[in-house]
Amino acid sequence: MSLDERDNLQHISEIDKLIHEPSRLAIMAQLYIIQSADFLFLLPQTGLTTGNLSRHIIKLEKAGYVKVEKEFVGKKPHTILQLTKEGRAVFKNYIENMKQIIDELSSNKS
């Protein structure tokens, strides 16, 4: 195995597995392009079910990528979600990494 190939593999191992999961990737991408949104907004945008979305958000919150704020509108609970600074940086890093890997794989193929 050449040194260059080892470098390529290192890029792949640097991928954040928590974000790489498709459902969480959809949530992160949606929150990355806006400032904040409520739970209801994310449901149709990500195409996830209520339970799935809730579960993935909890995982992202535990990792410190998503900030969850609870408030009450009248008597109804209302959840506002937004990426933390860390979450934003991690997602940016993730797409840069992925782009680099895809570019490298494409150039190796040609």
């Binding site: 400032q35 409520d38 209801l40 907004f41």
Partner: peptide, 13 residues
């Protein structure tokens, strides 16, 4: 009630 609330990016705002 169907789409929810969202605060868009600073550029969009």
């Amino acid at each position: 009630p169907r789409v929810g609330l969202v605060k868009f990016s600073p550029e969009r705002e």
